[in-house]
Design a protein around this nucleic acid. Structure first.
Lengths: 274, 274
DNA sequence: CGAAAACTTGATGGGGCTCAATGCTTGTGG
DNA sequence: CCACAAGCATTGAGCCCCATCAAGTTTTCG
């Protein structure tokens, strides 16, 4: 099975121009270290390392793991051993409540780290599920910690991963606490758009790798509400939505839809912000 | 002005038996280091340090700052220089949206750290406001980083602070995304209860230091809804609420009110979780 | 192809927001 | 010390956004 996107691989694959860098020897686990030639090098591998240190870092990655769509990379409560980096495909992370309720806390694409929230815990507080066939690198966290005692940059690297996660979570809290349904959906799309652009994909046209239900759960809405918001944005000419294919036709309007302007319909302006 | 609680200091003060440890010389900024005799020593100061290292850590605290109720410790966007620990009083932390909307992301009491979310950022992403007259210790973060290069335990200490914050945020996301109003209020009270117990105060009886509006903002509700939930819990005999004075009469019922059981009233059971 | 999953769209109702009035608490100045 | 103001909290009435329920349609995949 080739690594390149299949017809049902709806995740944002690495751009064609870069794909040859990602070839993995054999199937399943690849022993060969390919970081230096990996397209994601600049994203995963910390900056400011000396060549020897950089080599030490990349040599920590001794597992390349494959997952099929729907498979779980780690479950909540499982012992925390590795930090992961998404190479291809995409993931959702989910936290669970005792009574079975779930909250999707994030979507993760090529270059994103997985398992950050387990740092300093014995076990994973959340679980990570592949949304499409995926491929990850695994770094044993104990080794990373050991190495970071000698290599100064690595210390702040882990710190930066954690801090970025805190700020990201705060943004989601703002969304969940203070935004209306349509604002949440607009914010979600803008977020995807800028992340895809940062990875060298189109910011205006992309394919969602997650179901409406996952989006709804992430945004604190139902799948029906998400679907209706998509339709409304489509009818107002902001988006073109065809199943999971998204084309942003008017990114300025979408951006203003995030902020608190009065709604497009001439309804009474709410004092916005519950 | 004495450090001990005043009649309008409605924050959970350090228990009377411990107060003499907290006396600060003069007013304003105290130069003298008092960590060794501070009641919060076990909470703020990292464990597992050698005596000399512990002394180095506490010697970093060269500022003790006082704030009156309503004053801001740091604003969003301000350069990040210090990590703070609450000695007395209480704080709320708030993140801001461009259009003026705010989200309260947490309440912080004696022993809690402030400014964690600014680590690895040039500036504070959130702001911290004193809810009552307060007193904090300030640690210059650059010095802490420098020291943590030599002292191994300090490295994981900062990491643990950050990681704890991530997990805390995930809990709030679950609350904001998946819980009903009354569940949110119950969860909020249970959270306060256990934090007060951990600090040696009563878990059943305490005084809120924040307004209904702050609680509502924190929980993604309006102040009216919070007030109504309080009243309902009072009428069902779970709580005794008198303004900001809270007495938990039936902590088991309050706990079950957090999880997803059907509502107390005989209403139709919802499939819970939007 | 056929079944299951995913998505869309409509109808309906309720939880919580909005608006509004009132009571209570705290702080201030005469 | 009391009156007054300002802020905070409670309570009620009305209504809207979005969850729920229910088809019907499209897509996916064995």
């Amino acid at each position: 099975m080739p690594v390149a996107a299949q017809h049902h691989d709806i995740s944002p694959a690495i751009p064609v121009s870069m794909r040859h860098h990602l070839r993995v020897v054999g199937s399943g686990i690849a022993a060969e270290n390919t970081c230096e030639r990996c397209a994601l090098n600049a994203i995963c591998v910390p900056e400011g390392l000396a060549d020897s240190e950089r080599q030490e870092f990349t040599s920590l990655i001794f597992q390349h793991k494959r997952l099929r769509a729907g498979e779980t990379l780690f479950h909540a409560g499982e012992p925390f051993t590795h930090l992961y980096f998404v190479k291809t495909g995409s993931f959702k992370t989910v936290v669970l409540l005792d009574d079975g309720r779930e909250q999707v806390t994030g979507f993760h694409f090529a270059g994103d780290a997985l398992g950050i929230d387990a740092i300093s815990s014995p076990s994973h507080p959340s679980e990570a599920v592949a949304l499409a066939d995926a491929h990850v690198c695994a770094i044993p966290f104990a080794s990373l910690t050991r190495l970071s005692r000698r290599v100064e940059h690595l210390q702040s690297y882990v710190q930066r991963l954690l801090a970025r996660e805190v700020v990201r979570d705060q943004g989601l809290m703002l969304l969940l606490g203070r935004m209306h349904a349509e604002e949440r959906v607009a914010a979600f799309l803008m977020n995807l758009s800028s992340r895809f652009r940062a990875r060298g994909y189109s910011a205006h046209e992309f394919t969602l790798s997650m179901a409406r239900e996952d989006i709804g759960n992430y945004l604190g809405l139902t799948l029906e509400t998400v679907s209706r918001c998509f339709s409304r944005l489509k009818n107002t000419g902001v988006l073109d939505v065809d199943n999971r294919r998204i084309r942003i036709l008017n990114i300025e309007t979408l951006q203003t839809a995030v902020g608190g302007m009065e709604r497009a319909t001439g309804r009474k302006t709410r004092t916005v912000g519950r």
